[in-house]
Structures are given as C-alpha cells and as structure tokens.
Nucleic acid binder design. Sequence first.
DNA 1: GCACTTTGGCAACACCGTTGCCAAAGTGGA
DNA 2: TCCACTTTGGCAACGGTGTTGCCAAAGTGC
Lengths: 386, 386
Amino acid sequence: MNRANDGTGGTVGTGGARGGANLLALRSHNTALVLDLLRAAGPEGVSRLELAERTGLTPQAVSKITARLRADGLAAAAGQRASTGGKPRTLLRLVPEAGHAIGAHLDRDELRTVLVDLVGTVVGERRAPLDLGAGADAVVAEVAREAETLAAEVPGSGRGAGPLGVGLFGVGVALPGPLDHTRGVLHRVTGFPEWDGFALRDALAGRLGVPVVVDKDTNAAALGLAVGGERGSFAYLHLGTGLGAGLVLGGSVHRGARTGAGEFGHQVIQLDGPPCTCGARGCVEALCLAAVARGDLAGAARVLGVAAANLAALLDIDQVLLGGRTVAAHPGAFVEGVAAVLRARAHREGDHDPAVPVRVAPGGLRAVAEGAAQLLLGPVFGRGDR
Amino acid sequence: MNRANDGTGGTVGTGGARGGANLLALRSHNTALVLDLLRAAGPEGVSRLELAERTGLTPQAVSKITARLRADGLAAAAGQRASTGGKPRTLLRLVPEAGHAIGAHLDRDELRTVLVDLVGTVVGERRAPLDLGAGADAVVAEVAREAETLAAEVPGSGRGAGPLGVGLFGVGVALPGPLDHTRGVLHRVTGFPEWDGFALRDALAGRLGVPVVVDKDTNAAALGLAVGGERGSFAYLHLGTGLGAGLVLGGSVHRGARTGAGEFGHQVIQLDGPPCTCGARGCVEALCLAAVARGDLAGAARVLGVAAANLAALLDIDQVLLGGRTVAAHPGAFVEGVAAVLRARAHREGDHDPAVPVRVAPGGLRAVAEGAAQLLLGPVFGRGDR
DNA sequence: GCACTTTGGCAACACCGTTGCCAAAGTGGA
DNA sequence: TCCACTTTGGCAACGGTGTTGCCAAAGTGC
C-alpha cells in the first residue's frame, strides 16, 4: 500500500537554496535510515529495539516504519535473538529481491555491466569490448543492449517497471572524464571530441524507459565503498590509465558544484617538475605514471603517497583506499609505499594522531560498476547527493 | 511563549551514526531556514511569499513559523512592498537586538573580542595584548574579563542570561593550532607546551556561566564568511605568521572528524624541497614565507597559487578568499599572483570552466573574531556542524 | 463605486513521532 | 506445574507538524 519512497525526496525547492522539510520528507528520511541499518545488518537481521537505539527514534516509531516496510515487501522477519529473560527480540532483514539496479562501467576499452539486488549483491555480470570511437549512438545502443539482457534476469521486470518494490530502479553509468552529474551530460571524453556535450543520461533513459544516472568512475566507486560499509570519510584513489580520486566526506560523496571534485591526478607536487599532458608541470599523475613506466614502483608509490598525504591532511579523512588496474597489479608495493609517507607525515606533525590507514579498496576491478548501480540504490538508503 | 530553538537540535543519537528526525527537529530545521533568509534579507525585509518560494514551504507554513518568531520577538514587520494589483506584501525583518554573541580571537600576541548582534553586526569591540606564556589561568581570566566587559553592553544581559531572545548566546573562541572542536580541548599550542590538552571550553564556560565554543581561527573565519553572505563552497586561505585554510563545502564548514581539516600550510608542493619546521620538505608554508622574507612577493603569491589551484581542483570550489596579516599588507600582489596560477590551470584543463575567482576576504583583521561569534549564532540559522 | 487581484489568517485535516497501556512470549524460582 | 517477573512490540489516544479549503482584508484599475 504505502510507498517507502515516492521518489520526490521531500519538498523540492529546486536550485541552490537549502530546502524546507515537510512530513513526507521526514518520513522518507527516517525510512531511509532504517533501511540503511537493515542493509548493513545483512541476512542475520536486526531487532526493532536495536534500530531504535541506533537511529534515536522511539521503539514505537521504528515499529510503525518497519510495519510499512514489511507491508511493502522490502523487509521480512529473520528469526529471533536469544531471550535475555523476556520475550526474545524479533529480527528483521531486508528482502534482497525487492529491487534491483544495473551499473555500467564504461572503461577505456571495455564495458562492464552488473545487476545488483537491493542489498548490493551482484547477481549478474556481463563484459563486452567497448569502442568509444564508434560514436555516441552505437555506444548507447550497446550499453542499452547489455542492460536489457541483464534486466531480463529480474523477475517481473521489463521496461517501464515501477520504481520500487518490483523490477528495476534504473541504470547507473560510470565513466572517466569531466561531466555534469546533475544533468547527465558529458563535457569531454579524452581523445573523442565528438562526445563533447553529449546528453548521455537522457539518451539512455529515453531508450530504456527507466531512470538513468551518470557519474564519474571515481565517484561511483567511492559511493559503492561508502554504501558497502566503509565508515566515515575517506578518499578512493584510482590509478589506472590515469589517476583520479573519489571523496567521501561524512558518509556522502563530495562532487562539488560542477562534479569536478576529485581532480587528483593533476595536483602539482613538484614546482617546475616535468611537463604533464594537461599543460602544467609536476602533476602527480605524470610523475607517478612515469615511475611506473620505468619500473620504479617504490618511486611511484612514494609520489602517490605525498599527494595522498596532502589530501589526508587537508580534509582530515579517516582512511585512504587504493584501486585501479595499476594498483591491482602491485597492491603490496603501493599500499606500503603510500602508508610509509603517511606514517612519516603523522609522526612529524604531532604525536597525538595515528597515521591515516591505507588499504586496497575491496571490490577489485568490479568496484566501479557496482558503485554505478549504487547511484540508483544509494538514495533509497539516504546516500544521495548533498 | 514558544521557543524558536530549544537547543537540543532535534533527536540526539549521539555518536557517528546518522540520527532520526522527529517533529521537533523538523520545526527547528524549518525555523532555522526562515531565520537564515530573514537575516540574509537585511533591514529591508522579505515577504512571507518570498520566504515560501525560497524554502519550498507552503505560504501557510511560513505564516505559522513567522508568527512564532514575531511572538518571540525575533522578527518584526518592516513596511510593505508596492502592490502589484492586490494587497501589498508585508515585509518581515530580523530584530537585531533579539540576541547577541561574543567572539574572541586569540592571536599570537593580541586578544581581540567583538560583540555581535543577531544579524551579525559588530556592536562592540575590544583589543588587548596577549601573552600565552602567562599560563592558562591568566589567559582564561583575561578572556573572561574582556568578554564580561563587552557583555555588559547588552541590555538586560549578564551572567546566566537565557539562551535566546534576551542577553547572550555565548562566547566563541578562535585560535590557531590543532584542537578538538567538539570537546573544546586544545591539543597543542606551538611554543607553549603547558597548554597541551587544556580544556579551554569548560574552563571558560565554568567561569562565565554561558555556553562556549572553541574552534580553529581559520574555521571561524570561514564560518563568518559563509554566514556573511559568501555562497556555495569556498576556501579561506589565511597567511599570517603561518598558513592555514578554512573550508566551506556546500554552505557548511568542513572540519573533518578530528577538527584537523584545513591543514593547508604543510601541503607539499615541491618534492625534496627545502625543509620545513614540521619535518617534511617542500611545504607551501615554508616556501611561501621564505619568499615573503626575501621580499619576493610574486614568488610567494605563485607558490600560494599552486597550492590553491590544487585545492580548488580537488574540491571543485567556487572561489578562493585570502586573508591574514601578510595578505593584508600586500593584497594586490597576492590576489593577482594567485589568480594568475588559477587562470593558467583552468585554461589548460579545458575551455568549459572559467577560472576560480580569487578575492581578499571581507572583514579584514576582524574576520576571525567575527567568525568566532558566529560559532554561537550560526546554529540558530542552521549553520551548525555537519 | 464596483470588479478584480493578491495577501495572509482561520479552521479542518492528514499524518508524523510520542506516550500510556497491555497482550504475548519468554525466563526462572517455588 | 504454577506463578512472578522481564522483555518485546502492537494498539489507541495525543500533541503538533505542514497542508488544504475557505474567506476577510487590502490593495489596483476601470
């Protein structure tokens, strides 16, 4: 009967101004909070009282919210906890099949698409070669074809399916390069000027008949990690054919006003250093990739570490996560090299704070595609834009 | 009768978890939104319908909220707009005398305190020499004395005055160096080890009997600028005896989990560059101050510009604001030097985006003290932590 | 003087989380 | 086996939010 999320996201107030909130927005907010905790709890489930404690809501409010979710088929009972002297707590879990989303990762030469259920589990995956030079129409057609093939696996789905509770939420598309996340328009695709200003979101949405969201690959990966359980604030550093970053501050992806945030590769860390393809001198990307090219992994990691330490100090983040093909090829060398720089910086500046931890981002080469799917699922759990 | 803000700030849910919202939180949120627009409108005022349009609330909701504010004495009628064929719109404005806050700026050798009214106008100011070496008790006593002298100017105020509608909201204290904003504890005061771990907030609050908030000088200045009308996201770069930054992202100050964000002076921009006092090499602060010391203002500005361009690219901010004694001494040279680097970077990376604008921050040497007062006033207008 | 437009308050309403209450479902001791 | 006790969680009533429908008030313009 009830809708857990009607898609309006509360009162509108379009534009830059902060918006007023009404009762509908209040309900969506609290419902999203509960859904987020249900998802985080996994198949074991959580009790109502635990949800109440962790949201700050009263137990009765949680009961009302979870009753709606159960009526909508989004949540279900999952056994009960051991008694502590009274009636045992009933555990609730999210129903994974209650919704799905598709994530598409347009890499330089490969298209990777995944079908993800409501809890974020990948339940379908496809890979296909990609040729951006074939033109926008051909690429859009190819992405649509792959998405439709995957979508056919969703029970009761198909084009035009409802937004929630059954079928497909939509398709998230992640790709490198500057673009406008809010409008879904590409600014520039390096090496393929015919893509400049292409309205990818509308083209794909018009063809598929489901919502489409477009974002930078690094932002998608960062969102996927944030939804996947990484807490607090962190930076996802992606080292592949280029170098970029996705920033998560306070649990939300920071994109900046023009989706330009995370421009990490062209951070200058060597005044008057070697020239970069961007025109500047001493960019991390140029220094790092040059070191990789000559086989100097320690040098590449050190350079990356210096830039990561700059970022960590500037934003006071909780951890640094590394990903991308180049990192995947030599994970140990990069993690240790970057961590060494962060340790040195922390010890020099004061004894109070421990060094920012560095890890390889979970998810591997599928992280971007999974994150792309979270562009649609995230808002359901309150992980939308900010 | 009614309280526009009861200080609880909605449901608690202390800790890192995102909190649930109840009706009280909803009301505070919308009330803060309306208050913020009233403050931004200035003495001319705004009409109810304009408030409704800009918040996304219905006119009737705005009427209810403004009726409460008028009953509380926070808002009042301010004439009416010209008719457009019907009943003319009644204009509403904030009552400046409805509340005050004190801001204290503990600089290296000077204590500057300001008394600010509800709309942010400075209505009192004091300056006194400061000697951090005199010990915590002496400094706390001195700050308390200055604050009490200023507070005496508030009609109907005094110690223990109510939090809203009459008297003093509290005292905001801004000072350099690492500290814990949430607990009001100093970590380290460069050159004065006896201050390590001093609970400044509690010491001062206990003595004055009003709420006290402590923050870094750069964060306070950035908050003051954000409340003072600077829109969107920006960085405030403070170049005085040291170099630091305050970051405003999406209208709110970004402090990071440990109030460490804005560590800008020790961004490394020259690998294996000259050693810095922090132990690292090639920090902007060392490079920039060395250039200033040898009279090379263009060089100092260029170095600052490189670091500013890194920051602007990483966070996709809307503008860069410069402040601090060194900038105040040579504003033209720094603004132009930094702007030149940002222009060059923008043109190299693409033709779409114009360069990030650079300006001298308004407020001058009083900006930090004014911002410190906003540490108390800001939350009333929804500009609290995030 | 009258028709019309526009503002903004009053009253009724739907619905949010909250509170008070109590049935259901367990434990543990007699 | 019974009973006192603890704990869970649903039902009902409640206060208070923004919303809707309605209309008096206050202007303009013919």
